[in-house]
Design a protein around this nucleic acid. Structure first.
Length: 319
DNA sequence: AACAAGTTCAACCGCTCGGGA
DNA sequence: GTCCCGAGCGGTTGAACTTGT
């Protein structure tokens, strides 16, 4: 025998609307959010007079109705940044979104799956005939790869020290791919000579390089007294705290730095030899703790933050 | 003009995680 | 300790739209 209230819950659940949102529903939600601010989503759904579950309201607000969203096509800079971040973070869309101003994880995910994935695939097949059958799939975590052009590859080969055999280099870098993380380490002056001793020797250093914790994923707090017109979408909301790129008026011009990037990278190859960073650190094995840090925890945020301070990445004002 | 095939993207689903009782 | 609930995340779906024939 089921409890009466549970049956009531089921009744309510079955009455909830699904599918596309109507303009009326949108307006109700916007109006409620602007007058009452963010709270418990199931309460919001109820109080706004919406026959939707809280989850649906949250998604609609975050991905579509939020007034501080940037709509429209992704700029080349954003595209580059997504590629870069995805090579480092993999499918951690929310983390990637946190570094793109006013874009949602859903939007980025869709953009990646519909556009960038194909582009990467095409790049791979044009620059590397040997890999033509392989789809572009970055390694799970920091062993991610980044496509580069043939010129850069040649440059890298020339820069590579004589102590590095071409075969050992190939074991780390395929014809059109290389591992950016080694370069990240280099640019932070981490001593890669001892890297194979284990990640736990490096992790403490990472907290000493001015890596200040930054919080992501908070979509801001609404001003309850905002009286601006609903449909004009000119609400004065606090900016998203995590939207650091444009707030810093800066976007990475990745392409122009491939040479710096790759040269720095390969200056380290003779030290790192053929070991991939993920192998050295055991990143391939998710969930393993190394000195109280899991991969998900060990300051990817800080790492990403630090990436943007690296000298090899010029920041340009995006206007 | 009509249809098929391909693409995009809003929304859903299932899962994990954290906090509170 | 564990149960419940809400928030958030990533994968997936399918309707709407676009492009090709």
């Amino acid at each position: 025998m089921r409890k009466p209230d549970m049956m009531g819950k089921d009744n309510i659940k079955s009455k909830l609307r699904k599918g596309l949102w109507s303009p009326e529903e949108d307006e109700k939600l916007i109006r409620h959010m602007l007058t009452n601010g963010q709270g418990c989503w199931s309460d919001i759904a109820r109080n706004a007079g919406l026959l939707r579950c809280g989850k649906s309201c949250r998604l609609r607000w975050i991905n579509y109705l939020r007034p501080d969203l940037k709509r429209g096509a992704f700029s080349p800079q954003e595209e580059d940044l997504i590629i870069q971040l995805h090579s480092l973070l993999g499918n951690r869309w929310s983390k990637i979104a946190a570094h793109l101003s006013r874009r949602t994880d859903n939007e980025i995910k869709n953009f990646w799956n519909s556009t960038l994935k194909k582009k990467m695939k095409m790049n791979t097949s044009t620059t590397s005939p040997n890999n033509s059958n392989e789809s572009y799939e970055p390694n799970d975590i920091l062993g991610g790869i980044m496509p580069i052009n043939e010129h850069d590859l040649i440059t890298m080969c020339m820069d590579c020290s004589t102590s590095t055999s071409s075969s050992s280099m190939q074991s780390m870098v395929s014809a059109d791919q290389f591992d950016p993380f080694s370069m990240l380490i280099k640019n932070n002056h981490y001593d890669m000579t001892n890297v194979s001793a284990g990640f736990h020797e490096i992790a403490p250093c990472m907290n000493q390089v001015g890596m200040v914790e930054r919080h992501h994923g908070n979509y801001g707090i609404l001003e309850p007294n905002n009286k601006m017109g609903l449909l004009e979408r000119e609400f004065s909301l606090p900016t998203l705290e995590s939207r650091n790129i444009e707030e810093n008026s800066a976007l990475i011009d990745v392409k122009s730095h491939n040479n710096h990037f790759t040269n720095s990278c390969f200056n380290n190859i003779n030290r790192i030899q053929s070991s991939k960073v993920e192998d050295l650190f055991g990143f391939g094995n998710h969930g393993h703790r190394v000195e109280n840090l899991t991969m998900g925890e060990w300051d990817l945020e800080c790492l990403m933050q630090d990436i943007f301070s690296f000298p090899f990445l010029d920041f340009q004002v995006d206007q």
